[in-house]
Amino acid sequence: MTRSKLLSLLGSYGVVLALLLLILFGWLRYDYFLGFFNITSVLRYNSMFALVALGMCFVIMTGGIDLSVGSTAALGSVVAALFSPQGAWIGLGAGVGAGLCVGLVNATLVTRLKIMPFVATLATMLAASGTALLLADNQSVSVSYESGFTTLGQDNLLGFPIPAWIALAAYVVGWVVLNFTSTGRGVLAVGGNEDATRMMGLPADRIKFLVYLASGGLAGLAGVILAAQFGAGQPIEGVGWELFAIAAVVVGGTLLTGGVGSVGATLAGVLLLGILFNVLNFENGKGWISLSAYWQSVIRGLFLLIVVILQAKLSARSTAAVKEY
């Protein structure tokens, strides 16, 4: 039993351990890895992914998937940029609102019309991307620099990038919702056994509705940060974000079939994949080897595969141990 406990512990905290080892590796190997500039730029850049992954985490915990987050973020960035001359808050609200609209469509398709999440969000992914390109007239949309909108993406608060604070706040809220509200527990119950959840009298459809809505809103928020950070709404950004988010969620130990998951581990998953990218950049900088962006993708893919295989092995062993009782 102690052995299986150890294994299950390793299963839940493996991602944190891997993250710490990677940071240790980077710190020992590269001079400026833990330098202020590198830390803040890693956080600033990855905060967008963190927001998208948080929404994805909730969707996946219900046993669903949201493929539309990438193009929703692109749409959010364009809408935010278009509204940014009216003021920073209006730009923010418009971007998030655009994301919520996509989320609302997803939620309706999945819960009311009972369309499979994969198909429903694939459709909205295409639609959102098209809408973003239409609104932006097929080019990037410059934001207003007078309204202070760029503060959201470029400035610091107490030494840390504002996007990182936003992401952190979102994760704290996500953690509290998951662990300390009935809706949060319902999310896990729906993913674990939807029929049983309905029989238990929980509002399964409402719970699923809320997670798709939230995922859309968070993707919109990521889009706002994107626009503020790069000074322009980017209709063609966001390609592959959904895959990065799914990867981070899975690396964080959330089961793709739903029912088991963690907000904290998802954040660790985002940081792990983000910092891996960062380490590869540093390695390039050392000049020993030269890896193109394509190779970096290959390496990240392999890494994801290793994590998933390890997880499968760990969970197989710990359930085997449990079964012997």
């Binding site: 662990n179 527990r185 896990l188 119950a189 993913g191 056994n193 029929d195 238990m200 029912g259």
Partner: peptide, 25 residues
């Protein structure tokens, strides 16, 4: 048996009528 195997016994018993303190579980 219509329960949620991944979740704890407490959750399986209390889902749907959770106890709250200051609005939180």
């Amino acid at each position: 048996i219509n329960l949620v195997p991944y979740r704890s016994i407490t959750e399986n018993i209390c889902l749907g009528r959770e106890k709250r303190k200051f609005g939180f579980l």
